[in-house]
């Protein structure tokens, strides 16, 4: 009952995002992003917790700066359009706007706040941070037709840092955030071409994240050694967990392959061969650290674990059905395209 205010802030969070992606003017975009920021901070902050307070501080500082830069960008744009004989550069305002939105998303040269903020959140807030908070900035990047060189640079940076920085991590929140940075690179490549493609990529990515984070928050796991305790007497969960990470990495029989496949197709059609090839190759590193999480679960025996959850046979019909739909989704969508 004492957490009733969180319902209100979740509603205003969603309202802020919807305002900013459906507004007609730039000032409405700014208002929506501000509402989003003002309502996510009370959701993630817990005044008795050291970590979440610090995470909300870091998130607040970065997001406030990014929205101020965004407002500055389109005010410069307004003045530049209406004032004759100005000396400003041609695409300066759109570059400023795109850069500030990339700070808000956490794309790669501006990603430094993102793993730190993720480290201090609980899993539900981390899920909001990984999925819902990406909608508004990426949609507005899609609406702002910025120059391709900037976006391609950000794609390459995102994919490379998402792959390389995730290698030596032990915290699962850090791993999820670096994998999210990697996926942001792919989503940027998708939104460069088609809106529908970005929408599907985002939807499937959110569903995969939801399946993984559901398990992690159910068993309250935050680092790799704790995974052993979960998987000790839970072979079904273990298998689903492994398959979900394969799906997140984009291995073909699972649904995570579908948006990457479509993105590669569109990039080849638009003759971005080099960028596409680099993205595919570097995402293999991401797949490598996913395998490093999941391989010990099935190869090593976990008898040395001190935690014992053996009596706690976990059963959840909802989780099972979500996982089954997600993992076999590519087969079903292929069948739908071929026979219907």
């Amino acid at each position: 009952m004492s957490y009733l205010y969180k319902n209100l802030f979740i509603i205003t969070l969603m309202t802020g995002t919807l305002i900013s992606i459906s507004s007609e003017s730039w000032l409405g975009v700014w208002i929506g992003l501000e509402m989003n920021l003002l309502s996510i901070i009370p959701l993630m902050n817990n005044s008795k917790d050291l970590k979440s307070t610090e995470a909300s501080l870091k998130y607040f500082i970065v997001q406030a700066m990014a929205s101020m830069i965004l407002l500055m960008g389109f005010l410069i744009n307004t003045i530049k359009i209406n004032l004759p004989n100005n000396l400003l550069l041609e695409n300066l305002p759109s570059s400023i706007i795109t850069t500030s939105l990339m700070i808000k998303t956490g794309a790669a040269p501006f990603h430094f706040w993102f793993p730190e903020v993720m480290e201090g959140l609980n899993w539900m807030n981390a899920l909001i941070m990984l999925t819902w908070q990406k909608i508004a900035p990426m949609t507005i990047i899609m609406y702002t037709h910025s120059n391709e060189i900037l976006i391609t640079t950000v794609i390459m940076f995102s994919v490379i840092t998402g792959g390389l920085m995730g290698i030596n991590q032990t915290s699962l929140r850090k791993i999820m955030s670096y994998s999210s940075i990697n996926h942001i690179g792919w989503m940027m490549a998708a939104l460069l071409f088609t809106e529908t493609l970005w929408k599907w990529y985002f939807l499937i990515y959110s569903a995969m994240n939801m399946a993984i984070i559901w398990m992690l928050s159910k068993f309250n796991i935050s680092s790799i050694p704790q995974l052993m305790a979960m998987s000790k007497n839970n072979p079904k969960m273990k298998t689903f967990f492994m398959f979900n990470f394969f799906s997140l990495g984009g291995l073909p029989p699972f649904i995570g392959f579908l948006p990457k496949w479509l993105t590669i197709q569109v990039m080849v059609l638009n003759e971005m061969y080099l960028t596409g090839a680099m993205m595919i190759i570097i995402t293999l590193i991401t797949l490598y650290f996913y395998m490093r999480i999941t391989m010990p679960l099935i190869t090593l025996s976990s008898s040395s674990s001190s935690l014992n959850l053996s009596n706690q046979q976990f059963k959840s019909k909802n989780m099972m059905s979500l996982n089954s739909i997600l993992l076999t989704g590519l087969l079903f969508s292929t069948m739908a395209f071929n026979w219907i």
Binding site: E34, L38, I41, S47, D49, T53, E54, S56, F60
Partner: peptide, 21 residues
């Protein structure tokens, strides 16, 4: 209005940080 809300939110985070750190 929005910028004052943002400033107040920053100050409340400051208070929360002083209470924890």
């Amino acid at each position: 209005t929005f910028s004052v809300c943002e400033g107040a939110l920053g100050l409340s985070i400051l208070v929360s940080l002083v209470r924890t750190h």
